[in-house]
Design a protein around this nucleic acid. Structure first.
Lengths: 215, 215
DNA sequence: GTCTATAAGCGGATAGAC
DNA sequence: GTCTATCCGCTTATAGAC
């Protein structure tokens, strides 16, 4: 996973990064920024709000990240790193049903545990992915192509219902991330969320039925 | 559909609405506003950009909609009106497979023809639906409950694979709207979009396989 | 109804003390 | 490294002529 690793290093473009307290601050700033950017988008996010949430002053935040755009970029990179892990790790050795079951389960756990990361990523893509489009076209595309080939093999062997593998991946992403991105709607309609174990199980079974063609 | 109709009237809160040219302007403003809000979000949208796209000056736009928030509200209402139509119209008389096939197809056509409306709606929900949450909890919830009951009947009769009807609806929304909301990612990975008839067919078949359990 | 000019305020970024 | 105070551009919204 070239992109993910390549992106991880430059958390703090503005300084040497040698201090202890500074590194802890950077983590808190990135956490705060994720929450605010995911809620209000890049334009709507206020540096004051991020700084307050991170427990420092606005000029002090700007000491670590010179501009709002720098901060947004850092958050996006850190998020993408994490976001691509499940697909990269999808078990290619074990049997198809177990591998896909594990992948769907992992994706739902991510949607439950990191809904803000999901929404940040969604907002970036909905804007036309101005920052991420190169990574999507190169690294993610390579990964998807290899996984699609694997899925096609499994379909040939009769382990999965035959369908276009790319669209199967889109279906898994769309359905699992829906519970994070549209959590407000899901909550309004059902009163529940993935935090309820029973609801998590319902969602998991529904997605797996669609993916595997059977429970 | 109480909500949808109830929302339609107050396109132009600021004035009498008697003039001919004025009504045409309002339509052009709403079209322009949809495009800009869907791309940049509420905070990122610039009134200048909307006015220019609509072909009039910024103060003139503000003659029709007193504030940016009024304009956003009007666009959202008009969009929701349209957005709920397919579910409301899902044919309850014809046989289950035909009704669901028609619904999926219609939703995909909407995703193809009105991707900006899909993204505007998605952004509002991702923000926690501050404007729409009452409508989601009341009108949409009623509609969903009735449709879920219908789907449960069809499952009881053996026409559809048994699964939680609510999650089946979420799956249909998530998968179809994915091709609009994540169009940039789909394009980066496949080079295609729903505008390509072949790709539209692939997507449709993939979704229908998941919904019906067979092609 | 439509415009030009302008007011008013917000928010990103900087200066400089500690 | 962290703060207070402040600058300055940008954007919404208004005033008022046509």
């Amino acid at each position: 996973m070239g992109a993910a690793n390549r992106l991880a290093e430059l958390a703090s473009p503005g300084h040497t990064g040698k201090t202890r307290g500074g590194e802890a601050n950077i983590e808190r700033i990135l956490d705060a920024a994720l929450a605010v950017f995911a809620m209000d988008g890049f334009a709507g996010a206020r540096i004051d709000a991020i700084a307050e949430r991170a427990g420092l002053s606005k000029p002090n935040l700007l000491y670590y990240f010179r501009t709002k755009a720098d901060l947004y970029l850092a958050v996006l990179r850190r998020t993408l790193d994490m976001w691509l892990v499940p697909l990269a790790e999808m078990d290619t050795q074990s049997d198809p049903v177990a591998a896909l079951t594990g992948y769907v389960t992992r994706k739902l756990e991510y949607a439950r545990d990191f809904p803000e990361a999901s929404r940040l990523f969604a907002m970036e893509v909905m804007r036309g992915a101005p920052i991420l489009h190169t990574i999507l076209e190169n690294d993610l595309k390579r990964l998807v192509t290899s996984r699609a080939a694997l899925l096609a093999q499994w379909m040939d062997a009769g382990h999965l219902p035959r369908r276009d593998p790319k669209h199967l991946l889109f279906l898994i992403w769309a359905t699992t991330q829906h519970y994070a991105d549209f959590a407000a709607q899901v909550k309004a309609l059902t009163g529940q969320s993935l935090d309820d174990p029973g609801f998590f199980g319902e969602a998991r079974r529904a997605v797996l039925l669609a993916v595997l063609g059977r429970s």
